[in-house]
């Protein structure tokens, strides 16, 4: 118990003193996760909107595939990408293995199905009367689509934040493709795993506290976004 308290004290010391190594790790973690999330949103939201609005053969198969992707085990993603990017792999010539870019790609693969599937679900929930109303007010098909996306904005944002939660917390994929190289590819989750292995609980605990705080902030944001989506005293006609 005593060593736990001691580790906790040292962790707080590192946080309060803005330890350089700690800051570098946090910065890289945020850079990797937010980059992956932005790319996942750029591709995922329009695809989700398309899936939510259009009917085409094989649509259900795509949705089932995406829903499966939401639960992809990160280590499997890591393994798959490792095989792709390794020297002898089909994309080995890109020399991406053990780089932050490979980590961004791995997290993109994890976030993309979440952002896409939740965007699609939010779009489908928009009342069909909204589409008709936009049309009868003179909107072009593109403007109608934008209006539906706007109506689904809170659900879409919730999907993006859920994607962020997923990538911030994962360790398996980035450990395999990033290699946990100090000062280059070492992020919060991989550091926690490594330092715990080495018995250096202070840094691991400090990062754990920060990771929990970020997770807490993500959930607060999610809560308020969802709350904002349904105004108080809503009258349903």
């Amino acid at each position: 118990m005593e060593f736990l308290i001691e580790a906790f004290k040292k962790a707080l010391f590192l946080i309060i003193n803005l330890d350089r190594e700690l800051l570098e790790i946090i910065f890289l973690s945020l850079k990797v996760s937010f980059s992956a999330l932005i790319v996942a949103s750029i591709f995922g939201i329009p695809l989700g909107a398309f899936l939510g609005m259009k009917k085409f053969p094989g649509k259900n198969a795509v949705i089932i595939f995406l829903n499966t992707g939401m639960g992809l085990p990160p280590v499997v993603v890591g393994l798959f990408l490792y095989m792709l990017f390794s020297r002898s792999g089909p994309l080995g010539f890109l020399h991406l293995l053990y780089t932050p870019t490979a980590m961004i790609i791995a997290q993109f693969v994890l976030a993309f199905p979440i952002v896409t599937a939740l965007s699609q679900a939010s779009i489908m929930k928009v009342d069909p009367i909204i589409k008709l109303t936009a049309k009868t007010l003179g909107a072009t098909p593109f403007q109608v689509a934008l209006t539906i996306i706007k109506e689904a904005r809170y659900g879409i944002l919730a999907g993006v934040i859920a994607g962020l939660g997923r990538v911030m917390a994962e360790v398996g994929a980035i450990l395999i493709v990033g290699g946990n190289i100090a000062g280059y590819t070492r992020v919060m989750t991989t550091t926690i795993a490594l330092e715990t292995d080495k018995g250096n609980f202070e840094l691991a605990l400090a990062l754990g506290i920060i990771l929990l705080t970020i997770s807490f902030l993500i959930n607060i944001t999610l809560y308020f976004i969802q709350k904002k989506g349904v105004p108080a005293n809503t009258t349903w006609l």
Binding site: D127, I129, I130, L132, T133, T136, T147, K150, E151, Y154, G229, P231, L237
Partner: peptide, 8 residues
């Protein structure tokens, strides 16, 4: 429409 169709 009778339901008006209100944007959020």
């Amino acid at each position: 429409f009778p339901e008006v169709g209100i944007f959020n």
